[in-house]
Amino acid sequence: MDLDTSSIPELTAEELRQLYKLLIATRDLDVAAVAWQRQGILPGYAPELGQEAAQVGSAFALDTSRDFAFPTYREMGVALSLGVDMVEYMSTHKASWHGGLYNPVSTRLAPIQAVVGGSVLHAVGWAHGQRLAAGAGSAEAGLPAAITYFGDGASSQGDVHEAMNFAGVLKAPVVFFVQNNGWAISLPTEEQVAGGTVAARAAGYGMASVTVDGNDAPAVVRATRAALEHARAGNGPVLIEAMTYRRGPHSTSDDPGRYRTLDEERRDGGEDPVARLAALLLETGAADQPFIDDAAAEAKAHTDTVREGIQALQPRPGQEMFDFVFAEPTNALKAQAHAWREESEHV
């Protein structure tokens, strides 16, 4: 079933301006983070160049008073749009902490998930739990909804199929947000997604789906708002496939030149999402050039502040690796913690 988005109103001029500020801030920080890795400030980073509209647009649609987002390792734009402290977010990429130092409960962003497809399972479990906790008649009042992110490559993982099946059967209020960026690391989408599109799979799980231009930020906002409304009303999950393009490497350890040429990147990359929204603002009169220039300056200032914060991060106490495994530590874990203290702290 194709999701109907026609009832969702167009974004206001103020919303478009807010969206652009988030978009340019994401672009500036993302480009800088790649440079920081090359400079040795970050051990590793997963760039999102070209995918900013998909990430910012989807996060922009969330209601952080009740919804919850479940990211992978590439959703920096989602985190920034939700107001997460970027130094605390980047602590994982700095290898100072695993999953981010930010508070998931207050930010409504689950910890960064490095397991491919792992966040999808968590989102379905959380969404089903919200439905159970709300009880009968909860859909009329509007259920809290989860949104979970993954790529076209991750869509082939068994965990994703199991999660979508459970969500469909249980009518869990969850939005599966697929960023189809054309590549599963080095493998093009057409060589690993049977059936042509990820969205086509939704019908097999009894859920609605919508395919959206992932480089069109306002369109992504409207599609996500429609999906969230559908899920909150108790109609079950929705799969959104945002068609975009990964303009850079899969990660800073990847060399895309080994599997595609620069000419192919220029041909397939599509319209730049940041420039596209800037053009829309100017054409519609929602903003003028000074606004565009000021947003770029604000983005750069924010990036500089984040860099200072990242460089000031210190290693976390080693004991924490044992403190946050189980609510009630097992005897084996206690023994490991004791051995570690003897060897490293000479206790």
Rank of each mutant, 00 (worst) to 15 (best):
L49I: 13
H338D: 12
P111I: 07
L101S: 01
A301T: 00
G309F: 10
E342Y: 03
G195A: 11
L282C: 08
D2S: 07
R108Q: 06
A219R: 01
N180Q: 05
I24W: 00
K334H: 12
Y102D: 01
G44K: 01
E190K: 13
S119C: 08
E52N: 00
L23E: 03
P9D: 10
A327M: 03
V174E: 06
P47Y: 03
H346W: 14
S155F: 14
E52A: 06
P290Y: 11
A114I: 15
T330I: 07
A123L: 09
W183E: 12
E328L: 11
A123F: 05
A59D: 11
H230S: 10
A286C: 11
A219W: 09
A312D: 13
E140G: 15
G204H: 08
S209W: 12
T211R: 07
G57C: 10
A139L: 08
Q192E: 14
L29T: 00
D272M: 09
F176P: 02
M86N: 01
S253T: 14
V105S: 01
F176L: 05
P273K: 06
A163Y: 03
L170G: 02
L62R: 05
L11T: 01
L80W: 00
N165L: 07
E343R: 06
R225V: 07
Q55Y: 08
A231M: 05
T211Q: 15
A242W: 06
A25F: 01
F324S: 14
V347L: 09
T26M: 05
T244A: 13
G248F: 04
W183D: 10
A275M: 09
P237R: 04
T5M: 02
G309R: 09
Y20N: 10
G285N: 14
A35F: 04
G236N: 08
G182C: 04
A136G: 09
T252H: 06
L282H: 11
R246K: 03
L62C: 14
L262A: 14
G129S: 11
I240L: 14
D268G: 01
R276H: 14
G234S: 02
H93D: 13
L121C: 15
V306N: 00
T72N: 01
H93G: 08
Y102E: 00
Q39C: 01
N103F: 08
L262Y: 01
M243N: 06
P290R: 03
T284F: 10
V221G: 14
H346K: 08
A69L: 07
T26K: 01
V31G: 04
L228M: 08
F322T: 15
G153N: 03
A54W: 02
E271M: 05
I24D: 00
A231R: 00
M1R: 02
D2L: 12
L333R: 03
G270D: 08
S58D: 13
K334S: 12
W183V: 11
Q192F: 09
Q39L: 04
E343V: 04
R316H: 06
R131H: 05
G248S: 14
L3S: 05
P273L: 08
A194Q: 06
R316K: 07
A141L: 11
F68Q: 08
H128N: 13
V124C: 07
R267P: 03
V105D: 08
L49K: 02
A32F: 02
E345Q: 10
